[in-house]
Computed example of a mutant assay.
Amino acid sequence: MEIYREDTSVVARYADRLSDVYRRHLQCTTLREGAHVVALPAYRGVALDVLDLSSLGTTGTFKDWLAAVAIAECLAHGHRTVLAQSSGNTANAVARYAAHAGIRCVILYPPASRRRILPHLAEAPGVHFVEVDAPEERIKQVLAAASAALDLPVVPPLEAQLEANKLRAYLLRDAALASGRQWDWHVQAVSSGFGPMGLYRGFREIRQDDPGMPWPRFLGVQQEAIAPYAAALTGTAVNEEAPMIEPTLFRRAPGPDLLARMQSLCTDSGGTVRVVSNGRYHALEAKAIADLTSAGVRVTHDADGQVRERAGLYSLAGTYDAVDGGLIEEGARVLAAYTGGSGPGAPLFEPEHRARAQDVVGLVAALTGLRRPAAASQA
């Protein structure tokens, strides 16, 4: 059952909450950044709702919000070419929104994320996906080197990510007022954690005008193989030998700034970050899919029958697991974020450009038509 819906654009609806540098050009970048809240069957005495950030989005994930805001900032600063690095979802969103705004983009991604790339986006003029055979941290290094050597901005910057994601708080405030619901927990699978960090920034803003407004405790969910926040906050041992189930939940080393932000978020909200083991996830996936489907939320499968993305499913599996483990108690009401997984199915992307890490700067220079300075380093 649907509880609340913003069909067109959460970004446009709450644009007045953004600074002028973003707001001035949003009319040139927004497409469809919708969202809705649906009710799922209760689980062991816990009322369960889902915030679907996927079904009503342009590319099928909440990254559409941040792409709309980040590309608006690029227009404000006169940038006509940008760089990005992604495990898939941000790549698709940046490609779609940059092409819509007439901005050229070069996007680096690892081979493990190839099946996440939407092939039709690579056909847009000025969009170049580059598959880099290197781990995440190395790709970030060569992206920084290309940015410095060619004087090109990297999108989306942290501030744009936080500002775009804070709009979720205003949506949830209005959804709570309209539905009469009050959520005790907000659950989301986390990689970098920009989504919940932005969300709770928004809650803090709202509390400046309404100090008595309650906010939900935050529960972050991480997969067994990659759980830096859970390790830092709770001392959970990370099993790096475990297979990685969901490539978009990829960030192994958030760094001290992000760790501090997540610690603050959990302290302020009374929340935490937990690991869902591979065995538990596999045991709970079918239920998560069935519950979402019964509520009218599509779970996309690729032509090979594989679930296209599991980040949203991890939120739901993490909720069930937290109820089973006693963290979320009977009588609570939970809002789980379905951040991606209802996007379009697509054939496997065939890369047009592949590069070794040491060749990235030269390839980016060639794709953008910019001359690489003789002293430029590959990092």
Results as ranks from 00 to 15, higher is better:
Ala317Pro: 05
Ala39Phe: 07
Gly305Ile: 11
Gly60Thr: 06
Pro214Leu: 11
Ala317Gln: 03
Val361Gly: 03
Ile103Tyr: 01
Asp16Val: 09
Gly235Asn: 09
Val37Tyr: 01
Leu171His: 01
Gly271Thr: 00
Tyr281His: 07
Arg310Cys: 12
Asn92Thr: 10
Pro119Asp: 12
Ala42Ile: 00
His100Asn: 13
Ala355Phe: 02
Val299Ser: 02
Arg24Cys: 03
Glu131Cys: 10
Glu159Gln: 14
Leu18Ala: 08
Asp257Ile: 15
Asp291Tyr: 07
Arg204Phe: 06
Tyr229His: 07
Val364Ile: 13
Arg44Met: 15
Ala112Met: 13
Glu123Val: 06
Ala366Lys: 06
Ala122Gln: 03
Leu327Met: 15
Ala311Val: 05
Gly202Asp: 02
Gly362Tyr: 09
Glu309Gln: 10
Tyr229Trp: 08
Arg371Asp: 10
Tyr14Arg: 00
Gln141Cys: 11
Lys140Glu: 14
Gly220Thr: 05
Pro135Ile: 05
Met244Leu: 15
Val155Lys: 03
Ala379Met: 11
Ala337Asp: 09
Ala379Ile: 06
Val94Glu: 10
Arg217Pro: 02
Pro110Glu: 00
Leu259Lys: 07
Thr236Glu: 12
Ser192Val: 11
Thr248Glu: 08
Met1Phe: 12
Gly255Cys: 13
Arg310Asn: 10
Gly202Glu: 04
Leu233Gln: 01
Ala357Ser: 11
His36Cys: 05
Tyr320Arg: 01
Ala101Met: 09
Cys266Phe: 05
Phe218Ile: 00
Leu172Ile: 13
Gly325His: 15
Leu75Phe: 12
Val190Met: 13
Met213Gln: 12
Asp304Cys: 11
Arg356Val: 13
Pro216Leu: 06
Leu56Ile: 07
Ile3Thr: 08
Lys63Asp: 00
Ile226His: 03
Arg274Trp: 03
Arg207Gly: 10
Leu199Asp: 02
Phe218Thr: 07
Cys74His: 08
Leu18Arg: 05
Tyr22Ala: 00
Ile226Val: 14
Ala93Phe: 02
Gln263His: 12
Ala12Cys: 06
Ala374Ser: 14
His353Asn: 14
Ala225Tyr: 00
Gly78Met: 03
Val10Leu: 15
Gly345His: 10
Pro110Arg: 09
Ile3Glu: 09
Gly78His: 10
Ile139Gly: 01
Gly305His: 11
Ala288Ser: 13
Ala227Phe: 10
Arg32Ile: 09
Gly60Ala: 05
Ala67Gln: 06
Ala176Lys: 04
Tyr109Asp: 01
Val142Met: 05
Gly362Ala: 13
Arg5Ala: 07
Trp65Pro: 05
Ala253Asp: 13
Ala99Leu: 14
Pro196Thr: 07
Arg371Val: 15
Ala99Arg: 06
Gly102Trp: 12
Asp359Gln: 15
Cys105Tyr: 01
Leu367Met: 10
Asp7Cys: 03
Gly345Cys: 12
Ala47Phe: 09
Val307Thr: 14
Gly341Tyr: 05
Arg173Trp: 13
Val238Gly: 04
Ala311Asp: 04
Gln85Lys: 10
Gly102Glu: 13
Glu136Asn: 13
Asp52Val: 04
Cys266Arg: 00
Ala346Ser: 13
Gln306Phe: 12
Arg261Phe: 09
Leu56Tyr: 06
Leu26Cys: 09
